[in-house]
Write a protein that binds this DNA or RNA. Structure first.
Lengths: 223, 223
DNA sequence: GTCTATATAATGATAGAC
DNA sequence: GTCTATCATTATATAGAC
């Protein structure tokens, strides 16, 4: 009956995830959405009640995918090689990844829930990794999970700018993702600070925490 | 003459950096801007030509501060202790930091320039750190700088959500920033992956890069 | 420099036919 | 389910007085 081609409601949802993800919620009008889905503006409202209702439907759809088995592709992985193959065959997931970043950047209630869910998953995965001996234990697993999720979300959000800087168009290009994966592994394997610097910082933190920073480790891009 | 109190133009600019940073460009109307600056909407247009013109003026203002000597406070530092004191005395810098994140998230031309400038600074600082023996050398300094800037921007952008998760309101609260600084140092000092895991990954990368990910290091929040 | 008043365009949403 | 036509609101921007 209706299974051969996408019907209006589904097309609208797909277009919304794409456009909201690329232009933001405010930057996308109902008319633009309707054009992109090849329907009338009225149909958008008819199916989803309002523009906000449509956004909520998008949230649910992406959140539903996050709970699926292939969510790790969207959530981020060191294993770019396997992710690339999957994403090449499932372009709609790329759009969901963009949408996810935009949703997080919004800072509203839905994004707060989303962010907390990501931290939950990250913490659980990290604890699991600790138990398996793959991840170094942390003195503050909750804070570490939160930090890594924020970092990860930043890379996802600014992925195109990173890619552009490295001479590519998107983070998913092998030429770009290989370089990023390599330097990420550098940090994840060995850290960023030299052994000397670490020793100095340790001393500084323990003994001179109240001194106003002269001589402390300062480097852009640290938090 | 006009130095005692801020005149309209300056008040508008200050209000714009604040509101654009907290609500985004699209989410802030000229009327709201005018109210916040206690002027008429027409004066906003008179001084800056258009709403976009006002945004460009904000970009320039923040970019100008980035070139100043205290830019490291805004750009990020491991040394939260010294940053806190400065920020407490210069609340307008907090607003600029928010604005910076929003500007980067926009993804337009200005944000691209901004992002590239941040990477330039980061790369230079990292190279300097390498020469001083404080930073581990990287096989790909350009990519590492880009990655760290994206991470840093993510933490800045999602700082409030991170803080909320850790029971605070903002990243600048000592109760929050201490925990984040500690776990960031964990990663920067020792890395994230255990020695075992590193050995396994090295083998996997070298020999089995084409195998579709089974057994590879996978953890949410990795890039 | 700053205001009031207003023009003009775009937006989200509705009514009602098919 | 889907459309055309339209409403009410809000947006940016302008004109011209002070």
């Amino acid at each position: 009956m209706r299974s051969v081609d996408q019907q209006g409601e589904q097309r609208i949802l797909t277009a919304a995830i794409d456009l909201f993800g690329r232009q933001g919620f405010d930057g996308t009008s109902v008319r633009q959405l309707a054009d992109s889905a090849a329907v009338s503006p009225a149909l958008v409202i008819h199916h989803f009640g309002s523009k906000v209702g449509l956004r909520e439907a998008c949230d649910e759809h992406v959140l539903g995918f996050l709970k699926s088995e292939r969510a790790n592709v969207l959530l981020g992985t060191v294993d770019f090689d396997s992710a690339r193959g999957y994403l090449a065959e499932h372009p709609e997931v790329v759009a969901m990844s963009r949408y996810l970043s935009q949703a997080l950047a919004r800072g509203d209630l839905a994004s707060r829930q989303l962010f907390n869910r990501l931290i939950d998953d990250a913490r659980d995965n990290l604890v699991l990794g600790e138990q398996r001996g793959m991840i170094r234990p942390s003195a503050d697993p909750e804070a570490r999970a939160a930090l890594l999720v924020a970092w990860s979300a930043g890379l996802r959000l600014f992925g195109d700018l990173v890619a552009e800087r490295l001479g590519g168009a998107t983070l998913l290009e092998p030429a770009v993702s290989d370089r990023i994966a390599d330097v990420a592994l550098e940090v994840y394997e060995e850290g960023l600070l030299s052994a000397d610097s670490v020793r100095r910082a340790m001393r500084g933190r323990a003994d001179e925490a109240r001194r106003s920073g002269t001589g402390a480790v300062e480097v852009e891009s640290a938090p």
